[in-house]
Design a protein around this nucleic acid. Structure first.
Lengths: 352, 352
DNA sequence: TGACTTTATCATAGCGCTACGATTAGCCAT
DNA sequence: ATGGCTAATCGTAGCGCTATGATAAAGTCA
C-alpha cells in the first residue's frame, strides 16, 4: 500500500489534478470572509459592507485573482458571452458593426464570440449550434433568412436573438436594420431624378447574398417607369471587390451601350466601375452616373467623389447592443420595440 | 407550512431552479449506457463499440442534445476557446487574419473570442484579463509590445500565447509575423532603384501603431544613402484612411516641393495620395512614385495600379492556427520552431 | 422590553461535464 | 478449468462558482 503519498487524503480514493489557480476560496480565506461574500462583492459591490469590501479588494489584488467565468457561467446557467454570426468579417460593413458592438458590450462586461458563415445557411446552423453550447447571453445573426433547424434551435434555447442588417420579415425575436428594397428604390429614384433612363444594377454574389439581391429588385421595380429605356441587373458570382466592379461595368456596357446610370450593391464595386470609366475615357457623371452603397472609407475622397447610400453599420451595432443589454437586464422589449429601423441616407456627391 | 409545494422534494431543503435543458444524462438514459460512455463517445467516438455508438447517436438526435461547453470547460479545466486580441477589426489587415484564423480554428471545434484594443496597452491588458477568465485554449495577441502586467498575467496563466504581425523581439511564447523595419527597407530600396532621391514616408497613427512606426524607421534608415536629397517621415494622428492619404501628400509637398517618391504605411493612404496626385495633375509614377503596404482589395485595380508590399494576413492566420493546434495537441513547439517568419513580398505595379 | 424588520454574512447544494480509477466481459494461452 | 490480458463500460468526485435560503447582528417601533 502507498504509505505516505496518500497520507493527506483520508483514503486512497482517486484525486483530480488540482489546478493551482487562485480561486475565490483563496481570496475569501485571505480576506477573512466566506466565499459567498466574495462572490457577492464581485457581482454587487454595494451589497457588502465597505470594510469587508476593502479587505476583499486587497486580497484580490495581492493574490492576483482572476475570476473563472467558465465556472460562473455554469453556476449561473448563462455565460457573459454574446455570440455574433456575420457572413464575413472581411466585409467592411460587418467589420464596422462588429467593432462597435464589441466595444459597447465589453463596456458592460460581455465578451464577443465571433463566427462567420460565408453566406451559407448550413454553416450558419453549425455556428448557431456551437454558439448555443456556450449558453450565451444573446445571439446576434445577420439577416432574416435562416435554416429551419436554426430557427428551431434558437427558439428552443430561449436565448435572446437579434437579427441585424435587414428588415421586412418576421424576426425570430428582435431585429435592427433597414429595408434593402428601399435602398434600391432610393438609388433608382436618384438616378431617374438625374434624367438617366438606361440603367444597370451591378451586384456581386447575389445568389447567396439575399440582401444585395433585394436591393437589386427594389432598384429595378422602382426604375420601371414609363419612359425608362432599359434596366438590367448584372451579377458577379464572386466577392464584391473593386475588380468585380470593373468587370461588371464592362458587361453592363456590352449589354447596354447607351448606359447612363448605374447603382452598385457595394462601394467597392462602384469604385471599380469608376476606375473602369476612367480607363475607357467615360466621364462620370456626364457619361454615366454612379451610385454606390456603404459609404466606405474612400467614398468621399475618390475621383469623382461617390454618391452613395449610407446604411450606418455603426448605428446598427449600437442599437443591437442596447437591445441585448436591455434583454439581459430583464427588460426584454415587447411588440414594436423589438424592431428598430435604422434607415438609410443617400449622400449626394460628384458621381451623379 | 407549505403543504403540497414541497411534496416532490423529500424535505423543505432549498432547490435550485432546475434547467430543463437536455443533458448528457438524458442521452445516456435513452441510449441505455452510462453518462461516461456518452462523454467518451463525444470526445473519441472510436473508443466505444459501434453498437453503443449508434445507440448514442440516435439518442442525441432524437433529444436534440446540445453539449454544454461551459460545463465541459470547467470539468476539463480548459475551454475550447481561443481568444484573439487585435488593435482594430475595421483594419482590413486584421480582418483578414481573424477571418482565416476563425475558419481554421472552427474546423477543429474551437471558438474565437474577439477583442479589440484600439492600440491601447491598457485596453489590451483589460482584454487579456477577461480572456483568461475563460481559461482559453490559447491567446493570440497583436504585436510584441505589451504592458508589464499583461506579460505577468499571461505567464502566470500557462496558456499558449501567439503574438502575430510582428517579429524582431523576444516573444512571450510563440510568434508569427515579419519584420516591419525590413518592409520599410524594401520600400526604400525599391524607390532608390527607380532613381528617386527626394522621399517621404506617409504614416498614420504612428504614436500608437508601433509597427507602422517601425516601417517608417526602417524606411528612413535604408533611404539614407550618399546621394539622397531628402527623406521625411510624416505622420497623421488620426486613423489610416484615404482622406488621411490626401492630407499627408499635401503636407509632404509643402515640406518637399521636389518630392519624387513616397512610401505609405497602408494602401488606403497610398490610394489617397494617388487621388491627390490626380487632383493636382501630378502624374504617377513620372512625377511621384508611390509604394503602398497591404496589397488591399483595390490595389491591383486602381489607376495607376499600386506597387505595394504584401504581408499576407492570410498566411499569418494559417500559421497561427497551426501553432495553436499543435500546442493544444501537446506538441508545443520548441526553440526556433516557435517563431515563424512569414516575410513580405514587394509587388511591383504601375505606380513606381 | 420584546416583537419585528432590515442588513450583512454565511453554508452549501448543485450547474453539466470530464477524468480517474474500478469493474466487467471477452478471449487466449496454459 | 485457471489465470492473465485487453477492450469496453461504468461510478463518481470534483472543476470554481452562483443562487438560495438560513442565520446572525443591528435597528425600529410599540
Amino acid at each position: 500500500m502507498d504509505a505516505d503519498s496518500s497520507s493527506l487524503q483520508s483514503r486512497g480514493t482517486r484525486k483530480r489534478r488540482k489546478m493551482q489557480r487562485v480561486t475565490m476560496m483563496d481570496v475569501a480565506k485571505l480576506a477573512q470572509v466566506s466565499p459567498s461574500t466574495v462572490s457577492l462583492y464581485l457581482r454587487k459591490p454595494a451589497a457588502v459592507s465597505p470594510a469587508a469590501g476593502k479587505e476583499i479588494a486587497r486580497a484580490i489584488s495581492t493574490l492576483g485573482y482572476v475570476p473563472n467565468l467558465v465556472a460562473g457561467g455554469l453556476a449561473a446557467a448563462s455565460s457573459k458571452v454574446v455570440s455574433i454570426i456575420v457572413p464575413s468579417i472581411r466585409n467592411a460593413f460587418f467589420a464596422e458593426t462588429v467593432s462597435t458592438l464589441q466595444s459597447e458590450l465589453a463596456a458592460e462586461g460581455l465578451q464577443v464570440l465571433l463566427g462567420h458563415s460565408e453566406y451559407g445557411e448550413d454553416q450558419e446552423e453549425a455556428l448557431v449550434r456551437t454558439a448555443l453550447s456556450w449558453a450565451p447571453a444573446a445571439v446576434v445573426l445577420t439577416g432574416l433568412s435562416h435554416s429551419a433547424e436554426t430557427l428551431k434551435l434558437l427558439q428552443a434555447s430561449g436565448v435572446p436573438v437579434v437579427e441585424m442588417w435587414e428588415l421586412g420579415g418576421k424576426p425570430i425575436d428582435m431585429a435592427v436594420g433597414f429595408s434593402h428594397p428601399h435602398v434600391g428604390a432610393s438609388a433608382a429614384r436618384h438616378l431617374l431624378s438625374k434624367d438617366r433612363r438606361t440603367l444597370a444594377f451591378l451586384g456581386a454574389r447575389m445568389q447567396e447574398d439575399h440582401r444585395a439581391e433585394k436591393r437589386a429588385s427594389g432598384f429595378s421595380e422602382t426604375a420601371c417607369t414609363e419612359d425608362l429605356v432599359a434596366c438590367e441587373i448584372i451579377n458577379h458570382p464572386g466577392a464584391a471587390t473593386v475588380e468585380a466592379g470593373s468587370l461588371l461595368l464592362n458587361r453592363a456596357l456590352q449589354q447596354l451601350p447607351n448606359l447612363d446610370g448605374i447603382a452598385c450593391s457595394n462601394d467597392l464595386i462602384a469604385l471599380g466601375a469608376l476606375f473602369e470609366c476612367q480607363r475607357r475615357g467615360i466621364v462620370v457623371p456626364d457619361g454615366i452616373a454612379v451610385v454606390g452603397f456603404g459609404d466606405l472609407d474612400f467614398s468621399a475622397s475618390c475621383i469623382p467623389s461617390l454618391t452613395t447610400i449610407r446604411p450606418s453599420g455603426d448605428l446598427i451595432g449600437r442599437e443591437v447592443a442596447r437591445l441585448i443589454l436591455n434583454s439581459i437586464q430583464g427588460q426584454h422589449p415587447e411588440g414594436a420595440a423589438r424592431i428598430i429601423d435604422t434607415g438609410h441616407v443617400l449622400i449626394e456627391r460628384r458621381s451623379t
